[in-house]
């Protein structure tokens, strides 16, 4: 597969390490009332869709960027690639 890196352009997927569901960005608040439950869901209840999926890929043999790749798991079509850091900020993980 080819992943179109937002900074470096098309790169072979071999250069990346796959982590999985991008919801791993949404780490729960450790001080929340239901923290234990939230962490349980965060860790163990992830979707594994046959179809479009937002995934975390790490450009280990590259610039060490974590990316959020939107990929169809059936066709392998990749429709969007974002820097995970930007996604994390957009999802409110910044300060």
């Amino acid at each position: 597969m080819i992943i179109d890196h937002p900074l470096l352009g098309p790169r072979d997927a071999q250069e990346f390490v796959y982590l999985g569901d991008a919801t791993l960005i949404d780490r729960p608040d450790w001080q929340a009332e239901n923290a234990a439950e939230a962490f349980h869901d965060y860790l163990y209840l992830r979707d594994n869709p046959a179809g479009e999926h937002r995934e975390l890929w790490y450009h280990e043999q590259g610039d060490r960027s974590w990316l959020v790749v939107t990929r169809n798991t059936l066709t392998h079509e990749i429709t969007s690639v974002e820097l995970a850091r930007d996604v994390a900020r957009a999802r409110g993980r910044g300060r």
Partner: peptide, 9 residues
């Protein structure tokens, strides 16, 4: 560019 040669980054 970063690349891999003989499995070496």
């Amino acid at each position: 560019t970063r690349t891999t040669i003989h499995h070496i980054g």
